[in-house]
Design a protein around this nucleic acid. Structure first.
Lengths: 199, 199
DNA sequence: TAGATACGAAACGGTTCCGTATCGATAATG
DNA sequence: CATTATCGATACGGAACCGTTTCGTATCTA
């Protein structure tokens, strides 16, 4: 990828890899602390990264491009289910909702909410992160149907939202202050499995 | 309240009620269009309301106070269930999630997400809107348990999140582009009622 | 060593915003 | 009519920020 074989090193001082990383890290840090995307200033990023503003503008066309690249690094790989049981897999998957490899992701996510529905590019970025995770969970449900653990007539897409929604609103908004976030995944999955209707 | 009995009208030109309303309306309009709270400027509000900035600062101490008052007007009364059946009531309640009397509410809600977990005052305001609606839904569930429509051992608080979460993430984020928002309430409620486990 | 490029720091012009102040005009009371 | 407070409009000082440019310095290749 970064080999010099097909790209004969250009003359002059090469760009500092440390600066690249420091800029991205500083951006994510500030996003995790700050309130919204617009509130982050390039000057603050440069200061936090120990970098001149020119170094940033040498790499990115502007604030938007930098933010887009920074957010892309949060992607990460979706978790892989163990496959022992549908319940166990779902509890693990739903427990990971809104918690990527990077612990800052949970704090950054709310900052993006206002933009997701207004900016097509942000929405595409958001979906590119969420869809693979939905796909993993979808496959667990399909496996459960095949194996007879789940009823064959369930609405898979609705079930995805049913399992993900509660964790998302609780982690993003602390929607119900009386709900304990640590035990919530298991309780949600068990309730979805069992249903609430009298039989 | 606004009678002149115990408050002898002070001298001078009285404040324009039209200006009051125009300012609040302009604030909500801009919030519904704009992206985040910070992005709204007092000057834009004044221009939209056809009002001088001084007229705003004569009424509110600053932008925060104005925004707080404007958001409070979105509160409205929580919907009342018909009481015919648990299913019918839940479908109606969950259909109203994120949709207050004011149609702008659905667009404004995402703007507040970043602040809710960081600002205690915003969180209190948010809860003061959400809690009454949760209470109505909670009462429907308790009634269902009493009447034998629902199992007595269900986790009521989890069920609230289970029913609300999917609608909230779908309306706020369009979380799953393949889910139809109009049919979602009924599908969510039916799935929660039935459960997904094979029996 | 010479040339080229990147570096951090600093400054610049232009824009936006906040909160205050000041207009002449307006609308109420006494 | 005199008084008083508000009206919309406009300007101001101060601050923050963007994106660009210019420093002198550092680091690479040829």
């Amino acid at each position: 990828m970064t080999s010099t074989a097909d790209a004969p090193r250009p003359p002059g001082r090469p760009r500092s890899v440390r600066a690249d990383e420091a800029i991205i890290e500083a951006t994510l840090d500030l996003l995790a602390e700050g309130s919204t995307i617009e509130a982050i200033s390039v000057e603050a990023i440069a200061a936090r990264a120990g970098v001149g503003k020119a170094t940033i503008y040498r790499r990115w066309a502007g604030k938007d491009a930098l933010l887009h690249d920074a957010l892309r690094t949060l992607k990460g790989e979706p978790p892989q289910p163990s496959g022992r049981s549908v319940r166990e897999d779902l509890v693990a998957l739903v427990g990971a909702v809104g918690q990527n490899i990077d612990p800052r992701a949970a704090k950054i996510m709310p900052c993006l909410v206002p933009n997701v529905k207004r900016n097509a590019e942000h929405y595409a970025l958001y979906q590119s992160i969420v869809e693979p995770r939905r796909a993993v969970m979808r496959e667990v449900l399909r496996r459960g149907i095949r194996d007879g653990e789940l009823r064959p007539d369930i609405d898979v897409e609705v079930t995805l939202a049913l399992i993900t929604g509660p964790l998302l609103i609780q982690r993003m908004l602390n929607w119900n202050p009386d709900l304990d976030e640590t035990t919530l995944p298991a309780r949600v999955v068990d309730q979805v499995l069992a249903g609430i209707q009298a039989r």
